[in-house]
């Protein structure tokens, strides 16, 4: 797999996730962490684009600790994969490069 994109900004205040979605390729993965996990909820301004991207087979992950801390467990988009720090490490290994969007 080619690039793992990490996003740590909320799409409600930043265009970071949108920029990431613009250039994300089909072999890529996206990991939402810190305030980036607000991008994983159903009411996110990028929710529709996220659905389109996930239909293409691009996997989107959200970091469990950050989701839980913000109380977003019940608000998540159903197709988002939940992962933890071990998963984060695994994803970093599986992808050729990591691009952090911040």
């Amino acid at each position: 797999m080619s690039t793992l994109h990490t996003v740590n900004k909320s799409p409600f205040t930043h265009t970071t996730l949108l920029s990431c979605l613009q250039i994300c390729g089909e072999d890529d993965g996206i990991l939402l962490l810190e305030d980036g996990v607000f991008g994983a909820i159903k009411s996110s301004p990028c929710s529709e684009q996220l659905s389109i991207i996930m239909q293409k087979g691009i996997k989107i992950y959200a970091l469990m600790g950050d989701v839980k801390a913000r109380g977003l467990q019940e608000k998540l988009h159903p197709d988002i994969h939940i992962t933890d720090y071990n998963g984060f490490v695994q994803l970093s290994i599986e992808h050729r490069c990591v691009q952090s969007w911040y």
């Binding site: 080619s2 690039t3 490069c97």
Partner: peptide
């Protein structure tokens, strides 16, 4: 454009953000 950047990224050994 975005599409070209997408393939540019796949050609790299390391990305620095």
């Amino acid at each position: 454009d975005s599409k070209t950047i997408c393939s540019l990224l796949t050609q790299q050994d390391q990305l620095l953000s």
